[in-house]
Design a protein around this nucleic acid. Structure first.
Length: 660
RNA sequence: GCGCCCGUAGCUCAGCUGGAUAGAGCAGCGGACUUCUAAUCCGCAGGUCGCAGGUUCGAAUCCUGCCGGGCGUGCCA
């Protein structure tokens, strides 16, 4: 039961005939932010008053007069307050009823399926197959998985598709490495590790030559130019009057900042070069393969052209790579309906470009085939002048395939915000191409930062590998679990239980930290914060669940039997009411999450629920309740809390633990 | 240069489509374990919502300008 929907329906009936376009005013029925203003409030009287040219309080009175909520709300409510707010307070009896319904609904806690189910394709995770997954993949994976679970629960046809990077230059890189630097023994022992080593080695050599050939000279030139640009600014400063002077000073500051940045880049690139040159083996390799960059591209091109040997290598490499990635997905508890990587679309790309050309959408420009888009400066390039296709081409082919295969209403792309422009172009091009009716949404997210506020990297500047991240989080969780259990008079957890709980807490911590932030903003990755027992963390929610569970096991409660007793859940104590009201709001929270694809609304809800539970826990003893009926009531409330947390964390892909 | 995004407590972050006195956690201060997990809870203190205008019954939220930061910007993904 979504209370907001219900109330809006009632208001729709009340507003009908009172004003021309009631629909837009219904959105102004909202949860109250302060309990003194009731549980819900309607703020529509004020804007309506303007349209109808009457006083807001007069309008509010008219609305209240026509509003039929006698079954839902306490008299003398709805009351009119301030300039014309209509405050609604739900009847305790009605709340009790709703709680009862939730309690009896084993699987869905009273949450209805969508009235009009849609088909969603969700594109998320999408790692490169040839390299280890790194920190940049968690957000996409975790947010996408949460949206998938929630949409599916709400009754939508939901299709997850992991659009793997399995066809790009990274394969040319390892193919080249395999042909020239393979350690046969190591490959037999642990193929994925050896391929990773090859990738890193070849990549390092390619970067080295790039840096020497173009990167370094270009940077040096830019630094020199930056210095030249700054000279006249400094000397011009003297003769200037106030406003101009200020502007010039600002330009100076900006130029200095840019220069400092460039010099930092220079130091980094010099480090990289030195890393190879100071290493005798690497240095020798670099000297032996001066054209390694081009050779890698050639290997990639040969693969794409169907070269037999390269294709056989690709077929050999892919399974163990996928297996390694699957290992991480298993640990994360993430799975996909489809895993259609770039390679799947390879033989469709030429016809996409042909079709675009035939329809006059794509044209030749500076040797490349481009789709020019209204209002955008840069075109979307779908074929390079050397004939190769780009990810824009693959993405278009993917849209076409998904449309014909799944007939989706909406395709969600859970991809970081730096690709906003790409998706803007892609969506515009797709619409021109004829896919006007499907919703294409870039569910973008910010960068994961280190504690220094810069993108999270290792000290040497490499991406942080995901596996190590998970290991470290679970290791820290293990320490916390052990320390805590050790403070008990009699420790209650076995070693294997400690390990299992630590894994659930550690993985949960990483996921929850990610999901509890507004996805659009960057966030700082901190083990201390994500594993804290206070505040909005998975561990806190898991603790809250374990506490409820503790009540049951302490009292030797058979909660299934209690549930089926059929007595109403009575609202007595204010803390019970506040808790009950929060519980009943689960449904509207999920709708809110889905409305703009923001899982952090769910974590905020769960945290707030835990807060209401903490108050209840302090104020309302369960086992020592004044009478059996109250005890029974409170047990059922506890049960609803536990199930809401379990279901809610489950939507986020996080396990609950019975004790910790 | 152009485009997109961001600026909220000392720190990390919430804040719905514009609603009433802007919220959490950490850090600080003060309290609560013979009683369901104190891994907790309660209280206090802490704010010019970057700045300046504007829109209106009402602005952290919308518009304009400025200041500060991030990202992107024709053949990588």
């Amino acid at each position: 039961m979504n209370i907001l929907h219900l109330l809006r329906q009632r208001f729709a009936a009340a507003l009908d005939g009172l004003i021309d376009q009631p629909q837009s005013y219904l959105d102004l029925v909202l949860p109250s932010q302060d309990p003194r203003f009731g549980d819900y409030q309607a703020n529509c009287a004020m804007p309506m008053a303007k349209e109808l040219k009457k006083s807001p309080r007069e309008i509010a009175a008219a609305i209240v007069h026509r509003l039929d909520v006698a079954d839902l709300c306490d008299p003398p409510q709805p009351e009119i307050a301030g300039p014309g707010f209509i405050n609604l307070r739900l009847k305790d009896g009605w709340l009790s009823n709703q709680l009862m319904k939730m309690s009896h609904d084993r699987d869905r806690l009273g949450i209805a399926s969508a009235d009009s189910p849609k088909t969603y394709v969700i594109d998320y995770s999408s790692p490169n197959v040839a390299k280890p997954m790194h920190v940049g993949h968690i957000r996409s994976t975790v947010i996408g998985d949460a949206l998938y679970r929630i949409l599916r629960f709400l009754g939508h046809r939901t299709i997850s598709d992991n659009h793997l990077g399995d066809w790009g230059t990274q394969f040319g890189t390892i193919i080249f490495g395999y042909k020239h630097f393979l350690d046969v023994e190591a490959y037999r022992e642990a193929p994925v590790e050896e391929l990773c080593r090859l990738y890193k080695l070849v990549h390092q050599l390619v970067e080295y030559h790039d840096a020497k050939k173009t990167g370094l000279p270009e940077l040096e030139a830019r630094i020199a130019e930056q210095r030249r640009e700054m000279e006249p600014l400094a000397s011009a400063l003297d003769g200037l009057e106030k406003p101009e002077r200020k502007k010039t000073q600002k330009k100076m500051r900006q130029a200095e900042a840019r220069l400092a940045e460039l010099e930092e880049d220079l130091a980094a690139i010099q480090d990289r070069i030195a890393g190879v040159e100071n290493h005798p083996t690497l240095r020798a390799l670099a000297e032996s393969y001066p054209d390694i960059g081009q050779q890698v591209l050639d290997e990639t091109a040969a693969l794409h052209a169907g070269d037999k040997f390269n294709t056989s290598l690709w077929n050999e490499f892919l399974p163990p790579c996928l297996e390694a990635i699957d290992g991480i997905y298993q640990r994360l508890g993430v799975s996909f309906n489809h895993t259609l990587g770039e390679s799947f679309y390879h033989d469709r790309l030429a016809s996409v470009v042909e079709d675009l050309k035939a329809r006059g959408l794509a044209t030749e420009s500076e040797g490349a085939t481009c789709v020019f888009l209204d209002g955008m400066d840069a075109p979307m390039i779908v074929q390079k002048k050397d004939g190769a296709f780009l990810y824009a081409t693959t993405d278009l082919a993917t849209i076409a395939y998904r449309v014909e295969t799944f007939q989706p209403d909406v395709i969600l792309y859970v991809v970081d915000h730096r690709q906003s422009l790409h998706f803007e172009q892609l969506f515009a091009a797709a619409r021109k191409w004829g896919h006007e009716s499907i919703g294409l949404v870039h569910v973008r997210f910010g960068t994961v930062l280190g504690e220094d506020g810069k993108p999270y990297k290792t000290r040497s500047g490499d991406a942080v590998e995901l596996e190590g991240l998970l290991d470290r989080a679970t290791e820290r969780a293990y320490q916390i679990v052990c320390e805590n259990d050790a403070t008990r008079q009699i420790p209650i957890l076995s070693e294997s239980e400690r390990r299992r709980i630590a894994e659930q807490i550690g993985i949960g911590a990483i996921k929850y930290a990610d999901l509890s932030h507004n996805r659009e903003s960057d966030y700082i990755f901190s083990y201390d914060k994500m594993l804290a027992m206070n505040g909005n963390t998975a561990a806190y929610m898991q603790y809250c669940y374990a506490r409820v569970n503790g009540i049951f096991s302490k009292g030797d409660v058979d909660i299934d039997a209690s549930r089926s007793r059929g007595d109403a859940i009575q609202i007595g104590h204010p803390a019970e009411r506040a808790l009950g009201l929060e519980l009943v709001r689960f449904a509207e929270t999920l709708d809110r999450v889905v409305a703009d694809y923001r899982p952090n609304h769910l974590t905020a809800y769960l945290f707030s629920l835990a807060g209401r539970f903490a108050e209840f826990y302090e104020a309302c003893p369960v086992h020592n309740a004044p009478d059996d009926a109250t005890r029974h009531n409170r047990l059922l409330l506890c049960d609803l809390v536990a199930r809401t947390i379990q279901l809610g964390l489950g939507f986020l892909g996080i396990d609950v633990v019975e004790r910790m």
